[in-house]
Design a protein around this nucleic acid. Structure first.
Lengths: 139, 139
DNA sequence: GTCTTGACTTGGACATAGTCCAATATAGGA
DNA sequence: TCCTATATTGGACTATGTCCAAGTCAAGAC
């Protein structure tokens, strides 16, 4: 993620303070923040940053393939900066916490040709649901 | 689905006109309506039905395991009455249309023990994304 | 058939997540 | 330093979903 700003500059992005702060917030190992969480964390460094800029920037980063939008429940979308390493997600049904997981089989291979109904299938998302150790202990 | 009303009655449900109409709307082969779509279709038969009743009834049916709530994008949740036959979903990124699909491998088997991080994993959802024949032709 | 009662329904206010837009500010090239 | 296309801003607006007090009604008791 450290060279993200360089890649964006190479693509003709204007490097504003807002974009820089948002990129910094997303820089981390197992980060899956909602747009509002990104906004709150960004605002600690740049108090006047607007929600609109956060939504704009996240949308642009998704379009560029630098981050991935993840929807697990019907709540807020989360943004996953680990876009360059294919992986799936494990979600706690209690607290919503998310972890990246690696599968031993390619899920795309599990969908036979006869079940594609003429679709041009391009992506697959696998989400596991359960209770994290904290929520199991708490319940 | 035809015996759904009987099952509900057996569980002590009051059989109201609203619940009957909602159950009828959900009765179909490959139906994946949003709550608002269910409300619109129900209102054609029972014009005074309220949105609150639709949300209440759908929530109760989900809790009873008679239908399954499906979230694919960040938009409205969809409700899948095909709850008694395990399956996954294929979604058109263009128009949002959904199909049920059967996989050749159990996706739960693809998550090794070492990737469970102490979670009590109970469910898995696999969603394939692509473009349906109509959207491919239209684009 | 009528009564009774607790479960169900209703409309509207409220909450949350996200989008849109016109006015303003600014990064970066000339 | 200036210019201008691009980015940011606040606030209004939309979509989806939740909550609640008041009124209604299904179905068991008689």
């Amino acid at each position: 993620m450290s060279d993200l700003l360089q890649r964006l500059r190479d693509r003709g992005w204007r490097l504003t303070a807002q974009r820089r702060v948002i990129a910094e917030v997303l820089d981390g190992e197992h980060v899956h923040y909602t747009a509002d969480e990104v906004h709150a964390k960004a605002a600690r460094r740049l108090p006047e940053i607007s929600r609109a800029s956060v939504y704009n920037t996240l949308g642009e980063l998704v379009a560029l393939g630098e981050i991935v939008e993840v929807t697990t429940d019907g709540r807020a979308k989360r943004y996953d900066p680990n876009a360059h390493h294919p992986h799936q997600h494990l979600v706690c049904a209690g607290c919503g916490m998310m972890r990246d997981v690696q599968l031993t089989q390619d899920p795309m291979a599990a969908l036979p040709e006869g079940e594609r109904f003429g679709f041009a299938v391009s992506e697959v998302a696998v989400t596991y649901y359960g209770r994290c150790p904290d929520c199991v202990a708490g319940a």
